[in-house]
């Protein structure tokens, strides 16, 4: 009986530490993916500024320069635009985001901003495109830097809480 109890405590501690580790990894993934999205917007800005590329063409070109959820997102965008089934651009954009949402670790605010971008791209002239993209690039870059600054401390907190939580549960059960 004691062995079973010990095994249970060990498993509990492992589980709670694992949970703390997972939350930590989630934070790191969020920061990394925001960085990838920022990079995508920078590339898109370049394509529009230098070549006045239309959006469908830009997404097709950028597919080869991206990986992970960005690549999947661009694939969905290209497929949606090529279908030309009468959907508005923002509808195709939101559909593409929803198709990759399981893969991304963004906060609700970041997800909302990403969706809003779809209603602002393609509107008015070249200068407008550059300014809109610049605004979002600046926001996401600042967010990435903020997350980087917080990362070490946040991960430590998650790990400590994970361990402490597991210990507390173990004590209560014992």
């Amino acid at each position: 009986m004691e062995y079973i109890t010990m095994a249970g405590v060990v498993l509990l501690l492992m589980g709670s530490n694992g949970l703390g580790y997972c939350f930590c990894q989630q934070k790191i993934r969020r920061r990394r993916q925001l960085g990838e999205l920022t990079q995508l917007l920078i590339l898109l800005q370049g394509e529009i500024r230098c070549h006045k590329t239309v959006l469908e063409e830009a997404f097709l070109i950028l597919q080869d320069k991206t990986s992970g959820f960005c690549h999947a997102f661009l694939q969905e965008m290209v497929a949606g635009l090529q279908q030309q089934d009468g959907c508005r651009f923002v509808e195709i954009w939101n559909r593409a985001i929803l198709s990759v949402q399981e893969q991304v670790a963004f906060s609700q605010e970041e997800r909302k901003l990403w969706m809003e971008l779809g209603s602002r791209i393609g509107y008015l002239d070249l200068q407008m495109q550059e300014q809109v993209l610049e605004q979002y690039i600046t926001f996401f870059t600042d967010r990435v830097h903020w997350l980087e600054g917080q990362e070490a401390q946040t991960c430590r907190i998650y790990r400590v809480f994970g361990a402490a939580g597991g210990l507390l549960l173990a004590v209560l059960l014992l």
């Binding site: 469908e56 063409e57 009468g86 651009f89 070249l126 495109q129």
Partner: peptide, 16 residues
């Protein structure tokens, strides 16, 4: 509106 969007590939800025 819809035809214009499709004509310009949702990118009227490229046709200034």
């Amino acid at each position: 509106r819809e035809t214009l969007e499709l004509i310009s590939n949702h990118s009227l800025y490229a046709y200034e």
